[in-house]
Amino acid sequence: MKSERARLTRLYGGLLVLAGVLLMGVVYLLVSETLYANVMSAVVPTFPLEGQSAQYAPALRADSLAETAVVDSANTKTMQEVTTAAGDAALSQLLTVSGISLGAYSALSVALAWWMAGRVLRPVGVITARARRLSGSNLHERLALKAPPGELKELADTFDGMLDRIEELVSSRQRFAANAAHELRTPLAVQRAAAEIGLADDPTPEKVARIRAKLIDTAAGSEQLIEGLLLLAVSDEGLHRRERVALDETGAAVTEALAADAKARSITVELTTRPVTVVGDAVLLDHLVHNLVANALRHNHPGGRVRVDVGPDGLEVVNTGPVIAPEAVPLLFEPFRRARARLHAPGEGAGLGLSIVASIARAHGGEATARANPEGGLTARVSLPRRI
C-alpha cells in the first residue's frame, strides 16, 4: 500500500503543482500585457507640459495632455525609460514573489497529496490487515468496513459476501467429511464385530452362512456408499462431455427399470412424458432421474403412489409417504441428511440421493427444489435449460 500511496502522492502533487505553474504563467501574462500601459499612465502626469510650470503638471489628467499639450522630446524619452525600468522592476518582483509562493505551494501540495492518498487508501489497509488474519479457524469474522458509500465500501461488502459463501462451503465440506467418516466407519465396525464375535468359537456351518451373508450385505452397502460419494464428487466437478439427451426417454427408461422395485413395495407409479431435449451428460442425467424416482419409492409406504412428470418445464416427482416438516426440506439436499433417523435397515440408502440430484442439476445449469406435501411425502422438481 505504501507504493500505491507514493504513486497517488506523485499524481496528486504533480497535478496541484502543474495547476500552480499554469496559474502563475497566466497571471504573469495578464500583468505583463497591461503593466507598461498602466505605468505610463501613472508616470506621464509627473512630467510638466511645454509652456507650463512643473508645479501644475501633477494636477493635469493624462488624457487631457494628449489633446491640449505636447511633451518635449527630452521628457518623452525620460518617460519611456522610467516606464520601462518601473515595469521591468515590477515584473521581476512579481516573478520573485511568484517563485517563492510556488515553492511553498509545491511543498504544501505534496504534503496535502500524501495526506489525501493516506485517507483514500485507509480502507484498503483495513481490508488487507483483516484479510491477513483470516484463516480456517476464524472464517466467521467479517470486514464490516465502516465507510461512506463508494467503490471501496462496495469492495469490502463484496469481500464479506465472498467470505459468507466460503464459510458455508467449508462448513458443508467439514460436515460432509465427518458424516462420510461416520457412514464408512459403521459398516466396518459391523464387519469387524461379525468376524470377531460370530466366528470366535467353533462356528457351525449355519452360523458361518449367516455371518457370510451379513458381511456380504455390509460390503454391498459400503460399495453403494462409495459409489455415491464418487458420483457426488464427479458431478461437483461439472460436465466433461455434452450431448443432446432426450430427457423424456430417460425418464421412461428409469421408471421401467424400477418397476419391479415398485411392484415389490406395492407402490403405483404414474408416468407422464412430453418430448424434451437437454444438452448434458447422459450418464449423469440418468443418475439424476434414477435417484429421484428411487428416493420416492424408498421413502414411501406400502400401497402408496409415485407420479413422474417429464416435460418442457423439467422433471417433477411426487410421492406419498410420511409427513415432512417444511423447514426440514432444504436440509434434505445436504449429504447424509434424512427426514428420519437412520435405522441401518436393508435398502435404507446412504442419504446421498437428493444431494447428488442437486449437484447434477447445478452442473447442467439447472436447479433442484422440493416442497413437503400437506398429506405427506415430497414433491421434488428439477429445472434444466431446454434445448429443442
Rank of each mutant, 00 (worst) to 15 (best):
R5E: 14
R340N: 02
Y28E: 14
K214P: 01
L102Q: 11
P312V: 09
N373L: 13
F159E: 00
V97H: 03
S41I: 01
A264G: 15
L184G: 00
G13A: 14
K207D: 13
A325M: 03
E256A: 10
A325K: 13
G347Y: 06
V120Q: 14
V245S: 03
H182C: 03
D281C: 08
R244H: 05
P335R: 01
H299D: 05
R244A: 11
V97C: 11
G366D: 04
E375Q: 12
K263I: 00
D236H: 13
L315P: 07
E227V: 02
A282S: 15
A253G: 02
G365D: 12
E227I: 00
T46L: 15
R241N: 07
R10Q: 11
R173L: 13
V329H: 04
V21F: 10
R387A: 09
I226L: 15
L108W: 07
T84Y: 00
P330N: 04
Q224R: 11
A262H: 05
I356V: 13
A257G: 10
R5S: 13
T268S: 13
L145G: 09
Q52E: 10
V39L: 09
L65G: 07
N38I: 02
V276C: 02
L332K: 02
S92R: 14
E256N: 09
R307M: 03
I324P: 01
E348M: 08
L297K: 05
S172H: 06
D248N: 15
A253P: 00
G366C: 06
Y56V: 11
A144I: 01
L199Q: 13
V317F: 07
G314M: 06
I267Y: 12
G314N: 03
E196M: 10
R119L: 10
A85N: 14
A209R: 11
G349N: 06
L258G: 04
L134M: 15
A380L: 11
A368Y: 11
V317Y: 01
T255C: 15
P148F: 02
V126G: 05
P322E: 14
Q55S: 06
A361G: 11
A194L: 15
M79L: 13
N291P: 00
G87R: 12
L331W: 05
D217E: 14
V306L: 05
A259T: 13
D236R: 15
A19C: 04
L184P: 01
T84I: 07
R242D: 01
E348G: 04
S106D: 10
S41P: 00
A341N: 07
A57G: 02
L352P: 10
A339R: 05
N75L: 07
L258C: 04
A358L: 06
E81C: 02
L315E: 05
S73I: 07
L225E: 00
D72A: 08
L163S: 09
V278E: 08
L315T: 06
A209V: 01
D72P: 00
L284G: 12
A259P: 01
R10F: 03
G365M: 01
A195E: 09
T379C: 07
G365S: 05
R130H: 14
L121K: 10
